[in-house]
Nucleic acid binder design. Structure first.
Lengths: 145, 145
DNA sequence: GTTACTGCAAAGCTTTTGCATCCCT
DNA sequence: AGGGATGCAAAAGCTTTGCAGTAAC
């Protein structure tokens, strides 16, 4: 869901964070984005609007946004880090064929296992990854048979 | 749980996989290992026994083992890949303070969300990450108050 | 005018690769 | 003996960092 960028700008100013064109372009690209982009995806997309944009700025901005709690870093891709502007706890469907990652917004009833309690581990959150085959890859499979 | 290395050797030979000293050392180190070691962890540990061991061999062996289905690659650490000889589906407790990762062997009752069915996504597996604070870090916290 | 951000290039890590040599089978 | 594995070093990705110049406030 897209949020109002103007609102975001006010919030940032109130927090003493400078809003440069580059940052606004990154914020705009990420706003409501459910594609779990990597730093490179973001860099390429934003460079179209701001050809002077550098990779370092992308990384530094992502780190700033992460520290502010505006985005989360996903560790679901073994090759690179991906970013998600959806900071609400949510789960993922990962296609083992095409590697596409989709969100699951549903609030799943996750049971905290006895092992955690036994070990004195205080669970504060959870994240489920569902592996499988997306409808797209499934129909491709059928074509080959 | 440790498996019989001798049995593994027979299996490997039967599959036409050469068993070098290096591979045996890696297999031995991984057998029953629940520390989710990175390639570097493995390299350092095995180098103690085989000082001639190279990093490339570690990576190549890990890739071979992964292809054979003897280990799984974990994507739960944003900084590096980690490996797990426990190929049974299982879940993880991740301490957000010390980053330690513990296994949960329990079979959790995971509900396949309606969103997956709606999208025609065929779920074949799942993996839950529980985030929180381990007992060790919790007691340290209390000391500081 | 300050302060913080940008862009560049260099460096730092992790992982992969090419190739000559070695050693399991 | 043959073929795959090893070790080295170089390269390839991804990410971070230092610093001078620049833009936001």
């Amino acid at each position: 869901m897209k949020t109002n960028i103007a609102t975001k700008i006010k919030e940032y100013k109130a927090r003493g964070i400078k809003l440069t064109h580059q940052r606004l372009a990154i914020l705009e690209y990420l706003d409501g984005n459910t594609s779990h982009p990597s730093a490179e995806n973001i860099y390429k997309a934003v460079k179209r609007k701001f050809p002077m944009m550098s990779f370092a700025t992308v990384y530094k901005t992502l780190e700033t946004l992460r520290q502010k709690g505006d985005i989360i870093e996903l560790t679901i891709d073994p090759l690179r880090r991906r970013y998600d502007p959806d900071i609400k706890p949510h789960h993922h469907l990962i296609c083992i064929k095409c590697k596409k990652i989709a969100d699951i917004e549903a609030d799943l009833p996750i049971v905290i296992p006895d092992e955690a309690k036994k070990e004195g581990f205080e669970v504060t959150g959870n994240q489920v990854e569902f592996y499988g085959i997306c409808s797209n890859c499934k129909s491709k499979e059928n074509h080959n048979h």
